[in-house]
């Protein structure tokens, strides 16, 4: 539901550039909702990560993590996702300065890096499948694909939001406070990156 929360460009008017007008805490409704949403997402990914941790050693007749993981490749895609956080931050900065052109440039860069990451994931999944690890091969396979798949879907949703935002900014149709909308999508994007930081370490780097 992130896209809804994000686009819920509520209290934003010309004289209210920070969207934090007339609330009891002085904070923006949208940002508060987004942070709360991200907090709840921790429970979602926590559950998926725990499932994976519990099942990662249960290989059935299939290959194990040590046989299929390609750490150099995943390191590169992790690095790409990390750098997309930097471009996202730069987009937020540009948006705060009211610089539409650079906002669009950095948002597009972020979307591109995200797409590279998802592409890497698709490549990785294909390779694993060819090496004999399908979704139903073993509990390790099921829980691995479920966890990384959920993360991949989150990244993909983020890309859709980023591209939609670029389009909307181009046509000057941003509902509400532009800088805040960019910031909200940025929060979501960074969160997806944070989740990957945890997955990269717990799933890929720590040997089963």
């Amino acid at each position: 539901m992130a896209d809804i929360a994000v686009h819920e460009g509520a209290h934003a008017h010309e004289h209210d550039a920070h969207g934090a007008h007339a609330t009891s805490t002085g904070l923006s409704n949208n940002k508060l909702a987004m942070w709360l949403f991200l907090g709840t997402e921790c429970l979602l990914f926590g559950g998926l990560i725990s499932t994976y941790m519990l099942y990662r050693g249960r290989l059935g007749n299939g290959p194990g993590p040590g046989q299929v993981f390609d750490i150099p490749l995943t390191s590169i895609s992790s690095f790409i996702l990390l750098m997309s956080s930097l471009t996202m931050v730069l987009a937020v900065n540009a948006a705060k300065e009211g610089d539409d052109r650079n906002t669009r440039v950095w948002l597009s860069a972020t979307a591109l890096l995200g797409a590279l990451f998802v592409g890497g994931q698709v490549y990785e999944f294909t390779a694993f499948y060819q090496e004999g690890l399908g979704f139903t091969t073993s509990l390790f396979g099921s829980s691995f694909f479920t966890l990384t798949g959920f993360h991949g879907v989150h990244v993909s949703l983020g890309i859709i939001m980023l591209m939609a935002l670029v389009g909307i900014i181009t046509r000057s149709k941003v509902p509400g406070d532009k800088a805040e909308v960019v910031e909200l999508i940025g929060l979501y994007w960074h969160f997806v990156d944070v989740v990957w930081v945890v997955i990269f370490t717990l799933v890929y780097l720590i040997p089963a």
Binding site: L27, K31, L32, L36, G39, E41, C42, L43, G47
Partner: peptide
């Protein structure tokens, strides 16, 4: 308050 919202989630998880 933003930190609190997020840390409740992380902590509980």
């Amino acid at each position: 308050l933003f930190s609190l919202m997020f840390y409740i989630g992380v902590g509980l998880a």
